[in-house]
Computed example of a mutant assay.
Amino acid sequence: MKYASEFRDGALARKVAAAIATDCEPGRAYTLMEFCGGHTHTIARYGLEDLLPPAVRLVHGPGCPVCVLPVGRIDTAVELARDHGVMLCTYGDMVRVPGSGRESLLKAKAAGADVRMVWSTLDALRLARENPDRQVVFFAIGFETTTPPTALALKQAKAENLKNFSVFCNHVMTPPAMRAVLDDGEAIPLQGIVAPGHVSTVIGTAPYQPFADRGQAMVVAGFEPLDLLQAIAMLVRQINEGRPRVENAYVRALTPEGNPKARAVIAETLTLRPSFEWRGLGTLPDSALRIADAYADFDAERRFAVPYRAVPDPKSCACADIVRGRKRPEDCKLFGTACTPDTPIGSCMVSGEGACAAHWLYGRHRDPSQRRLSA
């Protein structure tokens, strides 16, 4: 297959779903987590849950980088933009995420703060060059997918001696989050995980082997409907065989070793944080990255001495349980009432990878008879 349309062939999708139904053993349940928020949106957009047999249950995971960022980190970004007079640059879906008191970067911008939405770290570097009299801070977030561009920006800033550029680093890592979900005694027991494709193009498949060793079927998938159905079919077969292993269903983009060059630049510019607070997962050891000492001059947290303050999630907001897979968006009492895309209370309703945003956008909260299959 070469074209996206081939990965969205509805007739073929129904054939794969029928094959999955045939493979499901009578009386057996298959509870699978799609870890990545990009997968969640594909599942919702194309109605894949409606194609699958009742024995297969999909659980949404914590792979939305905006969703897992705690309120306190949003507050710090707002403080940098509002109180330190910086030009704060970040990706578009961060500007509407509510912090304490539902304050957001968008509201700070409306009140006069200089907040810029950028497409990439290159835009932030360009703004620093064009505005030598201003401090430019890049608000960096994301899993391993978006970490290499931040690392390269740090190298470039050091090479150019851009004294007015720094990074507020909030990059997190996938394996510790998976471990936290699997160790959660209150979570729904899982038999398999659809691992994230884009993250895996950086880290490869080896980091997932410890999960297979402990009994989890693991398949890395791409982001089209047929990608996900193929991965689910492979997981069902693994579970039936009783041989959990790591398989690659994203061979057009992923090699087992990932991207060694990307990992090398990350290792040069960033280092592990001893601990980091996640929304929904709590404080996890060695689960996030900070700027390495050799690049300390470009660390916004050191330059502006902004302390981190933990802040609880808004009352009644189920975002924390949703990112853990304990609840679905429609289980939250605020979903679709007090919390909508126009008036978000939790980050899961804001992010382009958030489960609540997916359920709202594609009508997954409606009665099944009112939904139209897109596959």
Rank of each mutant, 00 (worst) to 15 (best):
191 Q>R: 13
206 A>S: 15
230 Q>Y: 03
216 Q>F: 09
178 M>S: 00
192 G>D: 10
230 Q>G: 14
229 L>R: 09
186 E>F: 00
169 C>E: 12
174 T>R: 01
238 Q>H: 03
169 C>R: 02
240 N>A: 01
196 P>L: 09
212 A>P: 14
195 A>W: 02
185 G>L: 10
238 Q>A: 04
225 P>K: 03
207 P>F: 07
240 N>Y: 02
224 E>D: 14
181 V>P: 12
171 H>A: 01
192 G>C: 07
176 P>Y: 07
217 A>K: 07
171 H>K: 03
229 L>N: 02
198 H>W: 06
216 Q>V: 03
199 V>Q: 04
194 V>N: 06
199 V>I: 08
196 P>T: 06
202 V>Q: 13
206 A>D: 15
237 R>N: 14
235 L>G: 01
199 V>Y: 02
226 L>D: 09
186 E>M: 00
225 P>G: 12
176 P>L: 09
173 M>E: 00
202 V>W: 10
232 I>M: 12
184 D>W: 10
208 Y>H: 09
188 I>A: 14
200 S>P: 14
218 M>T: 01
196 P>K: 06
169 C>T: 02
175 P>N: 00
214 R>W: 00
178 M>T: 01
208 Y>Q: 06
222 G>W: 05
195 A>N: 06
190 L>W: 04
203 I>R: 08
180 A>N: 03
223 F>V: 04
215 G>M: 07
231 A>V: 12
171 H>N: 14
238 Q>K: 11
222 G>Q: 05
230 Q>V: 01
204 G>D: 09
201 T>N: 12
191 Q>K: 14
211 F>T: 08
180 A>Y: 04
174 T>E: 08
194 V>G: 08
173 M>V: 09
191 Q>E: 14
228 L>C: 09
212 A>Q: 12
193 I>K: 02
199 V>S: 05
170 N>F: 00
225 P>V: 05
176 P>D: 03
193 I>P: 03
170 N>T: 03
179 R>W: 00
203 I>G: 08
233 A>F: 03
229 L>M: 09
233 A>D: 05
232 I>H: 11
209 Q>E: 15
171 H>D: 05
